[in-house]
């Protein structure tokens, strides 16, 4: 049962059906990271998908940018309770990247420059639900927001949209990544408020 906070009136009143429970709207773009922002040189940048057979599919910066680019209009929801509505990104769909990839594993461990990892089911990356994003609001993605490229999986809390993404590894089980080992929920659905475990 809620305790009424004497003398607290709050700022915003309108109910916004686009906001998941416990989220508030922000016009800023706050930063959630557990360490420094890594410096990634585009000349050395690669993105790869490694399957259970050890096969590696890799793209350098030019190769990634030569793939079909999609514009994405989406809302984003951070576990620290801010949401931004109607953001615009562009990047390459994971459907495109997985087109030639043969795997029977149902889970993915996402690896980033800087050493961070996050886990999710492969199904959450397929069918137009996820991208490797390289621009935000028409500009190259800022390093502090994950540039040069971040995973974009907007239907999950935003830590799953791994910044500085470097590669995906197909795995048989849904083992927790860095954020999930450090207290965040294994799946992270904002509409179910799966913040912490």
């Amino acid at each position: 049962m809620a305790v009424i906070s004497r003398g607290f009136f709050g700022r915003k009143r309108e109910e916004n059906p686009e906001l998941p429970p416990g989220q508030y709207l922000t016009e800023d773009f706050p930063v959630l990271s557990a360490g420094p922002t890594p410096v990634v040189d585009l000349a050395d940048w690669t993105f790869s998908i490694q399957t259970e057979s050890g096969e590696v599919h890799a793209w350098n910066w030019e190769q990634l940018n030569a793939l079909p680019q999609e514009d994405i209009h989406t809302d984003i929801h951070c576990v620290t309770r801010w949401s931004k509505l109607g953001t615009t990104w562009s990047g390459v769909s994971l459907d495109t990247l997985f087109a030639g990839v043969d795997t029977t594993n149902a889970y993915v461990m996402v690896h980033s420059y800087g050493g961070y990892t996050t886990n999710m089911p492969l199904a959450d990356l397929m069918d137009g639900k996820a991208w490797i994003a390289t621009s935000f609001e028409g500009e190259p993605l800022d390093p502090e927001h994950g540039g040069p490229a971040r995973l974009l999986v907007p239907h999950l809390y935003f830590w799953k949209s791994a910044k500085w993404v470097h590669g995906l590894r197909m795995v048989a089980t849904d083992d927790p990544g860095f954020w999930e080992q450090n207290g965040y929920h294994i799946y992270g659905d904002p509409w179910l408020e799966q913040r912490y475990w």
Binding site: D28, A34, G35, P36, P38, G114
Partner: peptide, 27 residues
């Protein structure tokens, strides 16, 4: 935090993942 962490990475004193940060918000 962004400013300080960038400086610290540049100093090359700390191994990766030994600089832990907590960002409180704002610009």
């Amino acid at each position: 935090v962004e400013t300080v962490a960038d400086i610290m990475v540049g100093l090359r004193i700390f191994a990766p993942l030994t600089i832990k940060t907590e960002r409180f918000g704002g610009k």
